[in-house]
Simulated scan of single mutants.
Amino acid sequence: MNERTRKKPRPPLDAASLEELALFYVGRYATTRAKLRSYLGRKIRERGWQGEREPEIGALAEKCAELGYIDDAAFASARAVSLGRRGYGARRIDQALFAAGIDEADGAEARALAEDNGWDAALAFARKRRIGPFAAEPPDPDRKRKVMAAMLRAGHSYEIARKFIDSEPGNVPERED
């Protein structure tokens, strides 16, 4: 390794540089408190810590939320709408919210939104994958089984998936509320 390719080691973090990192992260990315805590923890593991006392990652994440830089409920709603438009059902959206660290209270509205838009999400999924009414020809039993598995993995209920898979090409099933 020569002189040009060797990187100078970054100095360990202190309270001020940790706050700078947090502000940079929330300014650049739509995030949650849990994701910010995870990011800051990773940065401390990578660079080390030189502060007098333990880093207050949780308090820093809460401070960013209080200042309005982070809004877990808004993040959850935006994620639910985005995933629903892409064709994912309520179960898959719930999994994504759990992975993002959204708690039950902040994610309640997003979960309700996902349930309400389940039919539209299934329609988008079927259109994108050319399933059921959007297929060129009726599927054989093996293809039906694979399509059913794909719709269930995408988070749709068995009933909705069955309606789309059993519909003939060109015949979109009626929405039942």
Rank of each mutant, 00 (worst) to 15 (best):
D120G: 13
I102H: 02
D116A: 15
R91V: 11
L113T: 09
R86Q: 14
I102T: 07
A108E: 13
R85N: 11
A110D: 03
A112F: 10
A112H: 10
G89A: 01
R129Q: 14
L123S: 10
G89H: 00
R85V: 03
A126C: 11
A96F: 03
K128H: 11
A121N: 00
E109S: 08
R92P: 02
D116P: 08
A105Y: 09
L113I: 12
L123F: 13
A99W: 06
A99G: 10
A124G: 08
A122T: 09
R91I: 13
I93P: 01
N117I: 14
I131D: 02
G118W: 10
G118L: 11
D120H: 09
G118R: 09
R111D: 00
A126I: 00
R129Y: 06
K128S: 14
I131G: 00
A105E: 14
A121E: 00
I93C: 02
R127M: 03
R86W: 07
E109K: 01
R91L: 13
A99I: 05
R85Q: 13
L97E: 04
I131T: 03
R130N: 13
R85I: 03
A114F: 01
A90L: 07
Y88W: 12
A121F: 00
N117W: 14
R85P: 06
L123W: 11
R91Q: 15
D94N: 12
R85T: 07
N117P: 08
R111K: 07
